[in-house]
Amino acid sequence: MRRGPGPFDLAALTLGFAFLYLPIVILVVFSFNASKLVTVWGGFSLRWYEAVLTNEQLLDAARVSLGVAFVTATAALVLGTMAGLVLVRIQHFPGKALFTGMVVAPLVMPEVITGLSLLLLFVSLDVPRGFWTVTIAHTTFATCYVAVVVQARLLTFDRSLEEAAMDLGAPPLRTFRLVTLPLIAPSLAGGWLLAFALSLDDLVIASFTTGPGATTLPMRIYGQARLGVTPEINAVCTMLVALVTIVVLVISILQKRRLARERIGPGPAGRNP
């Protein structure tokens, strides 16, 4: 067989990457545009970044979004882990099939319906809409994602590790803390970040369930874009892209380091000393 990529492979790769990332590259490039026109290059400038950092409305929206995402991710992690555990660990309970379906349903439910139904719920309960209603709404769908991620991890989890811990004298809760938790921690971190990203991302559900004083960043960006796209928005989006990239890089570096640390020594097959 031929080694290395051929011309066809290279072409496919280039096209694929272009399709995925060209829009983002354009967005990033024009965020450094000195011109006020989004599509005409007028030289390099950081003026739009300065404008963002002095735009209280945008900064407020960013604070709301980060706050909502943080609380959502944390709450979804706890609830989703519990749901995942119940789904995998409890063999039979009344209504298990229904519960399994209900956990996955929001993943395929159109966001408009989720948002509208939550809005109706909040209205009928007469809950004042704002930061907490958005957070609750985000938690309901993010929980499902965490539950699915945790469930997938637990399905491949070797139960004999927990049995061994109990056999060695650790009661169930301590077994969970000392053995189960550290081993599923990477999946939990993944679930948390997924929930965080989903919440940060969401426009539709937030639009339905928010109230005065709790405008999220995507809502603010969308609102401004409707009045005309300014390079200011490009700058905000670039900063978001940078934030996400940094988080992803940090996670992958941490994981590589951990793997490298675990492989110190004469190799996995461990020759005799």
């Binding site: 070797d158 004999s160 590790l161 049995e163 061994a164 109990m166 056999d167 060695l168 004298g169 053995v179």
Partner: peptide, 20 residues
């Protein structure tokens, strides 16, 4: 008596060593 209070220990077929 639950396993964590029994004066017995088991060596598992898969060894069940804690990987972390």
């Amino acid at each position: 008596v639950p396993p964590w209070r029994r004066p017995v220990n088991m060596m598992f077929q898969s060894y069940a060593l804690f990987p972390h």
